[in-house]
Structure formats: C-alpha cells, structure tokens
Design a protein around this nucleic acid. Structure first.
Lengths: 208, 208
DNA sequence: TGTACATCAGTGAACGCGCGTTCACTGATGTAC
DNA sequence: TGTACATCAGTGAACGCGCGTTCACTGATGTAC
C-alpha cells in the first residue's frame, strides 16, 4: 500500500544504507537486490519504485559510504584530545586493526576500488569526488598545523593509507598484516614531525 | 580427443594466462568460465579437466599475474641505464600513465585487491605471498643503494604505489589522475634522495 | 472540512537469461605385453 | 618394434540455480473539488 512521503524517503535511505554496507562487505556482484531489500526490511519487488537499477543504487551507496567516512573523520577531529594532533589522529584511526577488520563500514576506496576502477560514467565520478573529499580534509588539517605543501602531502598521505590498508586486507598472516599497518603509521608520523619542524623553521625565518 | 602431455601443459598455461588478464580486466565475477576458455582457444566443457573450479583457477591466475609483474620488474632492473637508479626506475614505471591505463596486465593488487580482501584460505595466501615478493624486491634494491631501514621503506613505497594507482584508476578526470600519479612520484623521489644522503652520511661516519 | 478518486509504495509470483558445473561421447595418446 | 587396449583432453548439449527485472495486484496516502 502507499506510504507517506516521509516514510518513502526513510525507506529509500534504509535501502541505500543497507546497500552501502553490503556492497563493501561482499562486493557489488556478491550481493543480490533481494538481499539488500531484505536487509532494509522489505521484499525485493518494490526495489524499482526507488531506483532505476542496481547500478543506480550502487552510485548512491558509494556516495553514502564516503559520507559515512567523512562523518567519522569529523567526529575524530572534533574530539578535544585530538586538537593538536589532528592529522596523526586521522592516520592512527585509518591504519587501526579495527578498520582493517571492518570492511563493511570501512573506507569505500579499499572495499570497492578495484571494481570501480573498471567502470565509467556517473559511478566513477561520484567515487572521484569522494576521494577528492578525503584529500581535501587532510589538506585543510595539514594547513592548520602549518605544514607546507599541504596539497601534495595530502595526496601522498591518502594514497599511503589506501595502499597500506589494501596490503593489510590482502594478507592472511596476522603478524605481517599488523607490521604493514604499523610500518606505514610510524613512517607517516616521522615524515609529519620532520615536516612540521621545517614548516616551523620557515615560519620563524619569515617573521619580521 | 586426447592430447600429448606437453600439449596439455601448454593448454593449461594458456587458460591461466587468459584468466589472469580477464580477471584483472573485468573482475572475477565479470568473466565466465566459457569466456576464459574461448580466449584460450577452447570450448568451455573441457575446463574441469584442468581445474577443480573457477576459484582454483583464480588462485593460479593470481600467482601468474604476480609472476608476470615480477618478470617485468626484473626486465626494468636489468636495463643498463637503470643501474644506478634501480628504485626510482621501478617507481617511475609503476606510476606511469601507461600502467594506470592498462588494468589488464597491471598490478594484481590494484586490479583484484578489493575482491581478494573478502576471501579466505589459499587465495589470500597466494596473494599475500605476491605482495611479500613485491616488497622484497624493493627491500633488496634499497639495500643495494645503501638506503637504511630498507625493509620499512620497502613496505611504505609499495603501499604508496598501490594506493596511488588505486586513486588514479578511480578518478574520471584525466588531469586529476595525472596529478595523483605525479605528486606521489615526486614525493617518493625526494624522500629517496634525502634518505640516500643520510645513508651516505652514516656510511661516511662509520668509515675508520 | 469532507468526499471521491487518482496515485503509488510495497508484495510476491513470474520472466528470461547467463552462469558454474556435469555428462556422454570422440578419438588421439600413452602403456602393457 | 608392433599391437591391443586403457586413458583422458576436448566437445557441445544439458542441468539446475540464482540473478536482475517486470508485472498485476493491494490498500493507504495525496489531491481536486
């Protein structure tokens, strides 16, 4: 039977959220429309009242996954104890064992990147925007901390995070997995502290 | 009809090579057993005379993809003009536009990582071994160039390569894509030259 | 504000299709004597 | 070395299954008057 506009919008959101988690967990082709609808508390028939196709839902689910990540990042940044170490707090969280073990609600680039790379059009566009968003957050935080070349460093940091998580997730030996996470984390910390020093030096030199 | 042992072995290799390329190009679930067999010049029925299942072929195909990558790396390292810049020549090749556009014969971690991360057992084990192999090559070359902490740097470099390629491949804007590749490449070059200097300094200090 | 009708979210059966896998069959290769 | 038989790589039809999508139907919601 017909639902109110608000209920319809809520249902739509539930489908997107279910899909966002399931696609990351099992891959786009590893989940059926029926399973997504079941997770959202519905039967499969009504799917096409909300989305044109499974592909269209994937696009919305990808956007939602990036939004979810960005919200989590904002939360981390908002914590008072992270005020003076915003960049490293984001890095620590990203490279945590918790994140490595939580594909379902983890970074969409690692969970879906290989599949998205093969696609074209809208989907790739949404994904590229999500990646840009991740880099932008780092750029801003690096600026706040007075680290020079913030844009370049932001790209390199995000690349490192994504790559490290990919290596860790593709490794069956838990010890090796932890080593990858820890090694990248240590190196990024060291790189940042040496860069922060240099940024401080430049600021001092430029002081009148 | 029955084939000679040599022919059978060759056919098996052809199936693996076809699968290795097709899986990377279209994803494991984006290619059918029949398509792989057709690419290898056969009909689908004979597939199970060579492999127990599609999953078993995926394992062999992943190993073959890593072997292919390692052979290409060896080739690059063997070129006389790369003798004194072995690490940067590997990095330049990996982060090239050519590699970004060639998923089919490119790095298996970027092409299949998201899918492999969800799997368990044999497959993940083969993949982890392949990743270890990539890191080992870099460690050895960093040693050759006298760069300290070669093992840690090797992990970070490979993570950066994989992550950068993933970002580039998931980006629909060609200019942004090139920027990602170039930014990581520049930063790795700078990091390596500053580390090489430090390595040289340590070597000088330790000279009797 | 109340009424009569149109709309449409959700249901569950059904469709057609392609997939991984199996199987009976063929005939060249391998092997035992 | 030659022969007779067993083996098995490759073929193409067939199987059963699950998938994305469609559809007739239901009944509460939205809207026009």
């Amino acid at each position: 039977m017909r639902r109110s506009k608000q209920q319809t919008a809520e249902t739509r959101q539930q489908i997107i959220e279910a899909a966002s988690a399931l696609f990351r967990e099992r891959g786009v082709e590893g989940v059926s429309v029926a399973e997504i609808m079941e997770d959202a508390g519905l039967t499969h028939g009504g799917f096409y009242k909300h989305f044109e196709s499974k592909e269209a839902l994937l696009n919305e689910a990808a956007i939602a996954a990036f939004n979810e990540s960005m919200c989590a990042w904002e939360e981390t940044l908002a914590k008072p104890e992270n005020a003076n170490q915003s960049v490293t707090s984001l890095i620590d969280k990203y490279l945590s064992e918790t994140h490595a073990d939580d594909i379902t609600h983890g970074c969409p680039v690692v969970a879906l990147g290989s599949e998205i790379a093969r696609r074209t059009s809208d989907l790739k566009h949404s994904f590229a925007a999500g990646i840009k968003g991740m880099i932008d957050v780092f750029e801003q935080q690096l600026n706040n901390e007075g680290i020079p070349e913030s844009k370049n460093f932001a790209v390199v940091i995000v690349a490192n995070l994504v790559g490290t998580m990919m290596l860790a997730r593709c490794t069956d030996n838990d010890k090796t997995k932890s080593t990858y996470l820890k090694t990248s984390n240590d190196m990024l910390h060291r790189l940042l502290s040496s860069r922060a020093e240099r940024g401080q030096k430049i600021a001092d030199d430029n002081r009148p």
